[in-house]
Amino acid sequence: MLNLIIDGKEVSVEKGTTVLHAARKLGIEIPTLCYHEGVSPYGACRVCVVEVVKGMKPGLTASCACLAEQGMEVRTNSPSVVDSRRLIIELILARSPEVKKVRELAQEMGIEKARFRKEDKECILCGLCVRVCQEIIGASVIGFINRGANREVETPFQAQSDVCIGCGACSSVCPTEAIKIKEMFDKRILETWHTELELKSCKICGRYFAPKKELEHLKEKIELPEEIFEICEDCKRKNLTRKIGEIKTGII
């Protein structure tokens, strides 16, 4: 166990714990945007910035990517933390003024309007979609292109992806709802990734329910009866209800 002090309070955590988690253990809330427990920390949005007063590398750092050290002293609300966090959120607000999550964060910090020229980007480049696709799904469909202010998340050559399975994990993890997915008849269309995927129809009701590629991907990853991948969620539920009914009838 490691002992450290956050905002004057002592806390002991296991080796490998981030400062963010150590703070949460103490009930100290630190806002985050690019952090998600399911994927590796990235330290990019810098909203979770804290000040290391005593430690290997003193100064401001992203608490989501900074590991707790023995004897470390951290402040989550020093003037420089508060000022930096405010300005960072103001910068994100100027980039994405219409994004709900960003507006909420800004409001919490008492920022009404950004002092910079407004843009209208939905993506805040937190990279959660990129990490989920790579680390959880294992598909690595998307990545970052360009440098600096021109950075974007894209598919290779901004073209239809051959490896996308259409699972939509990117969209569900996106904090700003920037990734658009829609379904039309027998196709799932991932507009943001220039990709269309064929859907499979349910063996029972005939409804199109999931991308064929996703089902194949899952079949390889999880050992389950073939049938599971052939019928839609609704029919699965109906099947289950029917089976329970049969069992109950049998018992009676």
């Binding site: 990019a44 810098r46 910068l91 100027a94 980039r95 910079f116 360009n146 440098r147 600096g148 202010a149």
Partner: peptide, 21 residues
Amino acid sequence: TKDESCGKCTPCREGIKRMLE
């Protein structure tokens, strides 16, 4: 530096752009 920033973190990517503005 605006052109050479990798664009990963907010302060560098957005901040330099705004300073330049």
